[in-house]
Design a binder for these strands. Structure first.
Lengths: 348, 348
DNA sequence: TTGTACGCGTTATCAG
DNA sequence: CTGATAACGCGTACAA
């Protein structure tokens, strides 16, 4: 395996009858080269399938065309769709991406981050596992441009791209209140996460404004498996809510499963607003009304922002908050006052 | 930004009062070093936060602890879950992964692959976009260990890890036949893909064996959006099937949406078998009977296989076929002969 | 255009 | 057996 060594710049130079410097110049187009010489070089490059070794180029130039991306987990589609977008942007800009997962563990996050530095990446995109963000000092000390995405409430020492969670969740609550619902249950993954707290606060504020007191809250953890059981238990012990807001994609799934298993009809018995917007929400029966996070925009902004920093922009750090959008579908309906559980809104 | 250069091995050597060679030896533990000297070195390493530059290390040693992963798309959860598994294995083995997407396009696949070579990766995991696999010659020429995952029927020049699609899909068909269904519709993404063809063949063979002729077939393309419309159209023009098998996760979603919009009940009017097994299939109403692909196993095998090749194993190339597993849930039910559309199986 | 020093670890060779 | 010296890998950048 792998016995053939790739051609080096010296071999190309030899074949083209020029110096290595000329090959480098011709290939990268950084200096003018006689057309005739350029042709010879390109012939040699093609013949030998020459391609500069990135390790060598990076070592000498001090410029790495790599960006490291560290996410809490690769099992969550929200994170992977962000990666998809970043990869596309990176590709367009001639960068490659190194992807690492923290396995939802701050210790691992730290270890991974440290390991990533050995690449001397041009920049780092990080989605912290937790908003205590213990990796921050490491990141600071490394003096590598980085941008924080999602999850953090604020990050004074760096750029932050996040969603206006408060407003987005408030819109969901407002929607339900307008439909006449007064008995709301919020199913959250974990309030230890700043973005989840913001969502909760948004809903809570909306309810308090409406003069109906804070809604019920249930925290169920980060994985889908646990959600369903906990919710079923909760429902057995409390008066039934007329509407539920799930604060993440996994909790949305858990709520769907729990309602199904409890025999509660959506939206007949309970209205449901989900979070994040995936194909399965559109395919579900009924299709789920959901808060769509602007993933595409987030990824794009994160990339642009990081590139500016890499290119030396020293403008003050900024916290960008992007608007989420409530996608109205058929899982939410007016509170039925009598036996009316028909739903006549058109599907979207 | 990024003004502070990381400490070099020479600075560490100076601080510890030893040679750079000793630092290297002490850090990597490849040669014996007096405990006393080792302590001094480690003190200096810690104080300066020294970490060997991968580019330099790789350049000199010729060994790269990077594996490149090239997938058709990062939007498909099947591919991203594979990446999740590979990342975990890589991390454990001290490797990092570079992730690239071909954007479902063979031209891009080629370009990306070429670009990836510039890293001189220790190995490559590739999920080809198409089974014409035009990137194969490039891969061969590069003499880099690689393993092909999924999608290809056979790959004589390399190791292949795939699912026994024929058997898995046949099991799905058998299940439906045993329930009494005779009018089957298979919804495929594209028969241009070898793995999809294998699934189709498995179902077809099963039906022919049962003496009921080939089932109906509908090809709907690779994205979720198109599926639903095409299927609704098809249903309008053909006699209604009593059972549908969807051959990918996206087509499963499309079928679910189409059936819902057509007003057909699952499994009352139509039984449904989906493909791939995700949380949303368990959360759906009814939960979807599905062919589960052994993603965990595939990723694990792919990694192990690649590592063996990287370490120089020259055993003949092997094609590993892993068994898929039919997850029985509530979207499939016995063919109702009269007005019977009740379903009494226990949920799984 | 060219020569060549250089970046930074690794490793083979050599000295103690 | 420990530790030091120096060559080396390969592309880049600057002086000539």
């Amino acid at each position: 395996m792998a016995v053939l060594k790739p051609a080096s710049i010296r071999e190309v130079a030899a074949r083209a009858g020029v110096s290595v410097a000329t090959v480098s110049n011709a290939v990268r187009g950084r200096k003018r080269v006689t057309p005739e010489v350029a042709a010879r070089v390109h012939e040699a490059v093609a013949a030998l399938h020459y391609q500069a070794d990135r390790a060598a180029a990076q070592l000498r130039s001090g410029k790495a065309r790599v960006v490291a991306i560290l996410v809490p987990s690769l099992e969550n589609p929200f994170f992977t769709s962000l990666i998809a977008i970043l990869e596309r942007r990176a590709q367009a800009a001639g960068y490659d991406i190194i992807v690492a997962s923290a396995g939802d563990d701050v210790g691992t996050e730290r270890t991974r981050l440290l390991a990533l530095f050995s690449w001397r990446p041009a920049g780092i995109v990080i989605l912290p596992c937790s908003d205590t963000f213990p990796s921050r000092p490491i990141l600071e000390a490394a003096h590598v441009p980085y941008v924080v995405v999602d999850r953090l409430a604020d990050e004074p020492g760096a750029d932050l791209i996040a969603v206006d969670n408060h407003a987005a969740a408030a819109a969901a609550a407002h929607h339900l209140l307008a439909l006449g619902h007064r008995r709301l249950l919020v199913v959250a993954s974990s309030l230890a996460l700043a973005n989840i707290r913001e969502r909760w606060d948004g809903i809570r504020a909306q309810c308090l404004d409406a003069g109906i007191g804070a809604p019920e809250l249930l925290e169920v953890g980060l994985t889908f498996e646990t959600v369903s059981g906990e919710l079923e238990q909760w429902l057995g012990r409390h008066e039934r809510p007329t509407a539920i807001i799930a604060l993440t994609n996994f909790t949305t799934l858990g709520v769907m499963a729990a309602l199904r298993d409890t025999g509660l009809a959506v939206p007949g018995d309970v209205s449901l607003v989900g979070y994040d917007d995936y194909a399965w929400m559109r395919a579900a029966s009924p299709p789920i009304t959901a808060v769509r996070q602007p993933v595409e925009l987030m990824g794009g902004q994160a990339w642009s922002c990081l590139m500016r920093r890499i290119e030396g922009d020293t403008a003050p750090f900024q916290s960008i908050r992007l608007a989420g959008e409530l996608q109205l579908r058929l899982s939410t309906a007016p509170l039925r006052t009598r036996g009316n559980n028909r739903n006549h809104r058109k599907k979207t």
